[in-house]
Design a protein around this nucleic acid. Structure first.
Lengths: 223, 223
DNA sequence: GTTTTTCGTGACCGGCGGTCATAAAATGAC
DNA sequence: GTCATTTTATGACCGCCGGTCACGAAAAAC
């Protein structure tokens, strides 16, 4: 009986998360309220707070799930010995950018979560989980960077610390540009094609920045 | 009489803006409300809305003023013929980063303004002003980039478009990192010294990225 | 002094995130 | 099955937000 209860409780938590994602797909981020989530899940508002101590914890939970998925992909790239360090980096960056391009909800959460105020609001439990997974993602990328350095593809004038700091900044900035459109400019990156072009341009830039040369790979034809 | 009225009205608008800045210096960004601004200015809440059509217009107005100041500085660097293109870029980047480092309110507004929802909320008048000044800032920086290309300091493999896109992304990302601390990591960039070190590192990274070599200038001794 | 116009104001609105007394449902004893 | 007890879901409620507007005081016009 206890078991059954626990399982139902857990299933409902999944329902809340899924409802939130559904609503985020069809609605502006800013207008989503806890009441709407509860209603769409088919439960009362108070019940939501039996599962999450605040609204942002819902987002933190969803963000963590997505980060885990991304981390798995990163590890797979990092352990693929048939790829050079630079190729690993390219794969990771493309994966992360395309993941965000195709998952607007996650994109919102990623940006939202960067805000210090968000990190202060969520419960410590989620804070630590996000902190940990973020470190793991950076580490996985760092492995590829190290490999690139060892293979002599990376400009030796830049320290590894500087590389990570700089590339992280570019990544974050591009993520925001991808979501919000270029600063206040008219260039809006509305369509899928525009976003894809922007992504490729930024990835090329990042790799050219650290290698000193353009390394756009040959098209991945099977022959 | 009409004159006197107009002057008082204008003076009060200045008061609102100054009050907002004062409050932002001593208070968390998220907890600042229109009511507090009005009270601190010594006027009624309704009066604020005689000057600004919504809360975000106040921020937009302040942001625009700061951008204008930054633009003046950028133009001065761009027109300084004793600096090479790369040196112009370094000066602009350092100026912009330090400006934000020392002006937390502006930093908040800069980040806040990147959000699409912010741009949708403010009145068209401010939207266009911000849009224009942003383009002018990019143009001013672009002049330095062009100079760098002509002088042969910039990696010729990268197109100017790619350079601007990539550097803009790095700039935005670094700005956010500077304000919010590194992603969810423990590295927090709390102190002035930590921020300064981060700024120098990122600027070095950006210039190394586009030139292919580290170009940290000799210390600016007068002799 | 009286009327008319202008202009500042704070009570008010709908909606938000979050709480909690209470009703309803599940459980257990017999 | 019945009733007592515990567990659990709930939506009315709270304080606060950004934004509005009828109204009263001050200024202008006469």
């Amino acid at each position: 009986m206890n078991d059954r209860k626990a399982r139902e409780f857990s299933r409902r938590e999944r329902d809340i998360l899924d409802s939130t994602l559904e609503l985020l797909a069809g609605e502006h981020w800013e207008t989503l309220s806890v009441d709407k989530i509860a209603r769409h899940t088919g439960i009362g508002k108070g019940t939501v707070y039996k599962h999450f101590s605040c609204k942002d914890d819902i987002y933190a939970c969803l963000l963590f799930e997505d980060c885990k998925q991304m981390h798995d992909a990163f590890l797979a790239f990092a352990q693929n010995r048939s790829l050079s360090g630079v190729e690993q980096m390219r794969s990771m960056l493309l994966y992360a950018f395309e993941f965000h391009r195709d998952n607007v909800a996650h994109q919102h959460m990623h940006v939202h979560c960067k805000q210090q105020s968000f990190r202060e609001r969520i419960s410590p439990e989620y804070f630590e989980k996000l902190d940990a997974i973020d470190g793991q993602l950076t580490d996985a990328f760092g492995m590829a960077v190290c490999k690139g350095i060892e293979e002599g593809d990376v400009n030796p004038a830049m320290s590894q610390e500087m590389l990570i700091a700089g590339m992280s900044a570019t990544f974050e900035g591009a993520m925001i540009t991808l979501q919000e459109g270029g600063s206040c400019k008219h260039q809006q990156l509305d369509t899928h094609a525009q976003k894809t072009e922007y992504i490729n341009q930024v990835v090329d830039y990042m790799l050219a920045a650290i290698t000193g040369r353009l390394t756009r790979p040959v098209e991945q034809g099977k022959s």
